[in-house]
Design a binder for these strands. Sequence first.
DNA 1: CCGATCTTTATTTTT
DNA 2: TAAAGATCGG
Length: 720
Amino acid sequence: MMGNTHSLLDGLNPQQMQAVCLASGNMLILAGAGSGKTRVLTTRIAWLLATNQARPHNILTVTFTNKAAKEIDARISAMVEVGTQAMWAGTFHGLCHRLLRIHFKEANLPKSFQILDSTDQLSVIRRLLKTQQLSEELLAPRQVQYFINRHKEAGKRSTFLSADKPQDQQLIPLFQLYDEYCQQQGLVDFAELLLRSHEMMQSNPLLVAHYQQRFLHILVDEFQDTNRLQYQWLKHFVGKESALFAVGDDDQSIYGFRGAEPSNMALLLKDYDITEPIRLEQNYRSVGNVLKAANAVIKKNTDRLDKALWTQDIDGEPLNLLEAATDKTEVAFIVKEVSRLDKAGILLDNIAVLYRSNAQSRLFEQALFDRGIAYRIYGGLRFFERQEIKHAIAYLRLIVNPEDNDALLRVINVPTRGIGLRTIEGLIDHAKQFNTSLWGALKLNHELPVKLANFVALIENMRALTEPMALSEMIRLVVARSGLKAMYEQNLKDHTERLENLEELMNAAVNFESDGDQIPLISFLNNAALESGEYQAQHGQRALQLMTVHAAKGLEFDTVFVSGLEEGLFPHENSLTNAKETQEERRLMYVAMTRAKRQLYLTCAKQRVLHGRFNYPMRSRFIDDIPSQLTKVLSDDYANFGTTLRHTMVTKKHLKTMPNDLPYQIGQTVMHQKFGLGVITDAEKMGETFRLTVNFAASGTKWLDTAYAKLQIFDESMKH
DNA sequence: CCGATCTTTATTTTT
DNA sequence: TAAAGATCGG
């Protein structure tokens, strides 16, 4: 089983070598972007195995995404001959889930507890607000959700909170009520997975001893993204005999919104007496120009441990900059460029299009489809969050556990079967009265209205029929019998896609049919909440990679397009009021740029449709932070996109509202003496003059009358 | 009391 | 734009 140890270590630089071959003890590796972080992590595992310092079951590897976990597993398998099944590798949430399944009793959970994803969580909260007679206007469900999650991620239960602010007086009891409801229903939200297993370990020295003995090596990737609870959770596993190996980069901390505390890195040094972390500062990924540009952007952040990332590589080509006329021409340009690169021999897998938010993927999808370019979108509308999938899953959940109120409410009238709001309210009252589940209330009543009786019969009938079936067959039957299939077949608008997704659900189920440990259906249902759904087609096929910047972390590509670089989109407008969040946006930009090995394109549009409206954003501050000698400005070549352009501009809305004698153009950048630079977003004729709506970079939106306001048309050539 | 249709509204990032 | 809520006709 001994691999060749020397070939494992070939080509590592001294710092990487030091990290891989650490003898014992805990260590933090400060690893800049592209410095071989993942390589060090995986090589260390392979080295531990190859030199017999550890067996697979002694190793616990924690990552942040399922994709990263798979990647690590694949790389190790390629390096060593030992099977890695006994190794525990996964996300914090995945690992906690595993723990709770094994030790459900110690965690005080029912055996068949279900995981609540964020959408489910929100609807539970909505319903809770309703039962408490609290109007959503007074207390936004999202705010309640944020309150609960934020505290759980800090390791706090409602009972440990004191109402400092007046609003907390309402929120704390809600938090408590929510937790009671989840406990009673056997529901576990994402943060609860962590908190619950943390508490379980805390009160269970035997378990702690067991796992400390088992896991001699605990490796954590992307350590800068751990939150306080995750940090405390990790501590349970680090014993006298075990070694914690954490890898991170504070410049790549992009999960602040999820409670990530980059300060955990400093805490780690202190708590584990690490005097000197190992620093990996040589970048092996990107050419000089890309690295210089990325450094110029990140340098503007104040809260950072300054690092000196350098490369031996050549400068390479300048970065390509494009300010397109519209979001459509931006996409058209990128797609055309991709097709050119493809023909020039760059593999499509090696090209990525990145964007700030998932909604931006639609335009690309359309354009790529039209052009016949293979593409693969990661994330996006998560497979298991689509309504048709949720409906199907709710039926399955009801079959497993009829007491599942949420599942029942979701499908009792989907497809519509004449059970309306009144009936359901009556049912809820009835259940409350007899202190039972909704299903219990249905069974209690012997004179059920026909429609309700039919529903009960349907569920029981499906349960009986599917009992002997394989999982995928079971899903097929449920989709057909429940009427979901017929419902989507009738609905011509989106029927193909939804039916295809249901079909895909059956395909995904096949993978769980041979899961020996558990009842396939149960393990399938639980994975549904945690897996983001890499079940998209085109597996193995060479395809252009599309994803959010968040999803791209840890990956690298020959050529990278960062699109939608506009103020309000990237940096996102929700982050502009908060300096901390603006810094996170900047780190996000840094992550995006450093994904590129050889070529980097930065693009933005002067006009963009957002939430179904036209917007005229300024280009992103991040573009202006890059020294102009590193960039080359491209044009989106109007002639080629004339059709798309005309299509966008000549909408009814524009014909109606745009006075044709307007001396300016919508979308034009103008300079105002007092307000500075801005973009004209709207115009209205007011008698002889016009009232312009101008979005100023510094001071926001203003209305200006052309009779008074002196606006200077801002010449593009002045910028560069 | 249901269900279809109109209206409103809220839109980041991930597990 | 799309999903959730409010309204209206049967």
